[in-house]
Design a protein around this nucleic acid. Sequence first.
DNA 1: TCAATTGCATTTGTATGATAAATAATGCTA
DNA 2: TAGCATTATTTATCATACAAATGCAATTGA
Lengths: 245, 245
Amino acid sequence: MTVSTMDAPAGKSIRPRVRLSVAQCLAQDIFSGKFAEGSNLPRENDLCEDYGVSRTVIREALKILQAKGLVVSRPRIGTIVCPQDEWNILDNQVLDWIGPNLDRMGLVDCILEARGAIEPMAAELAARRATMQEIADIEAAWQAMAKAGNDIEAFIAADTVFHELLLKASHNRIFQQFGALMDPALNFMLSTSAHSAENLEESIGQHGALVEALRLRDSEGARKLALALIAKAKHDVSAARSVKS
Amino acid sequence: MTVSTMDAPAGKSIRPRVRLSVAQCLAQDIFSGKFAEGSNLPRENDLCEDYGVSRTVIREALKILQAKGLVVSRPRIGTIVCPQDEWNILDNQVLDWIGPNLDRMGLVDCILEARGAIEPMAAELAARRATMQEIADIEAAWQAMAKAGNDIEAFIAADTVFHELLLKASHNRIFQQFGALMDPALNFMLSTSAHSAENLEESIGQHGALVEALRLRDSEGARKLALALIAKAKHDVSAARSVKS
DNA sequence: TCAATTGCATTTGTATGATAAATAATGCTA
DNA sequence: TAGCATTATTTATCATACAAATGCAATTGA
C-alpha cells in the first residue's frame, strides 16, 4: 500500500512528507505482532516497494526506530526486531504507537504500578516546591474535570493535564518525563467506559483534596492522597476489565 | 574536523561507518552547551563540511537526535535544539552522551530523588516476585562487590549490576527501564573518589542485608533497606561534592 | 574426510546530485 | 500602512552508484 494520501495531478509528481508515517506504520506492525521480536523486517528495497517511497525515506524511518530501541540493522543480516526489554517504552512517541496494544502487552498494570511509586513522591515534592502559579494551573485542570459533566473525553483530557502538571510541579525532571504515562492508562479506561456518575464525583473530590493539600504545603497529606488516587485507578481498571470479559 | 579516524590509502576512497559518531558529537555539543536550547544547528550542508561526510550521514544522524527529542527540523527554518523538557533523558544512549555534564545539568540530584521513589518499590516487588535464579544472580553481584577490595571501578561495576538486576527482578518493565539510571549517579561519585574503607564495608553490609531480605521474601524489609541504600548514596554524593568544592 | 581459507552473493552504509515542498524575508501594490 | 505576491533559503524526497560487512558455499590442502 502506498503511503501518499492523495494522487498526483496529471503530469506532476507529488512528494508528500511521509517519513514519520512510515515509521509509525512499521512500529505499529511491530507492536501488533506482525513483525515478531527477533524476526527480520523486509529488506529496505522491498519496503520501498511496499510503501511506494524511496530508500531514503525507508532508511530514515528505520533510523528513528533504531533510536528508540525497536530494531537493529546490520549489513547482509538485515533489520531485526529487538527483544522487548530493549524497547524504549518510556518514549512518548512509542507509547503513542503502542496505543491499543497497551493492555495486550501487559503495560497497563506496569504503568499503574510505576505510578504508584512515582506519583506519591511527586505530590510530596510538589507540595513543597510548586509555585503559586503551578498550583493555580493544577486547580484550573481540576475545575475543568469538574465542569466536564458527562463528557467523558473532556474529563479524561483534563485528568491527564492534572497529573502532568502535578509531575511538572515536583520540579524533578525525571518525574516530569512520566507525563506520557498518564494518557495511556487513562485512555484504556475510557475504552471500556465503566464510569458511573458517583465514580466521577468521587474522583473529582479526591483531586480537589489533593489541590488543597498543595495549597497548605501539606506534603504528607499530598502523598497519601496521590496514593489513594492510584489505588482508585487500579480499582477502576480491574472493574473495567471484568466488564469487558 | 573530519570524523574518519584513518586516512585513505592512496587512490582508494575509504568509507568508515560514522553515523553514530556524528550523532554522538552533535549530541555532546548540545549537552555541553555549545548549541544552546532554542538555537540553530548549522545547516546540513555546513555540517557535511564540518564533519567531512555526506549529507546522507548528517541527515540520518539528525534523525536519531530528533527521535530522542533533542532537536526538530523544518524546511527553511533549519534544525533547532529543543527545550530541555523535551529531551529524552531516560534514554540510556542520551544519558551516556550527557556523561560528564550530568551534574552540571542538575541531573544527579534528580536521579537520586527518583531512585528514592522507585527502588524501594522495586525491592518490595522483587521480594515477592523474584525467581530463585534472579536472587542468586543478585547475590553473585553482591559477592563481586565484596571481592572488589580496593578496586573502586570493579566495585562500582558490580554495584551497577546489582541494582540493574534488582530492578529487573521486580518484574515490572517500567522499573526495568531505569537500569540506565544506575550507572551515571554512581560514576559521578567515582569521579570524586571519596571512598573510605569503612564506607565500602558499610555499603557491602547493606547490600547483603537486602539480598537476605529477598531470600526471606520479606518485602517490607527489602523496601526499607533499599530506602537506606538510597539515603546513603545521597549522603555520599553530598560528601563528595563538599570535597570537590 | 575434514578443516581452513578463499571467493561470492546479499544487505546495509555512504556518496552525490537533482528536484519538490515549506516558509521567512523581501518587496510591491494599493 | 496593511496586505499580497515573489523570492530565496532550507529541509524533504528521489534516484543511482559504489563501499563495506558478513553469511554461505566452493575450493583447496592435508
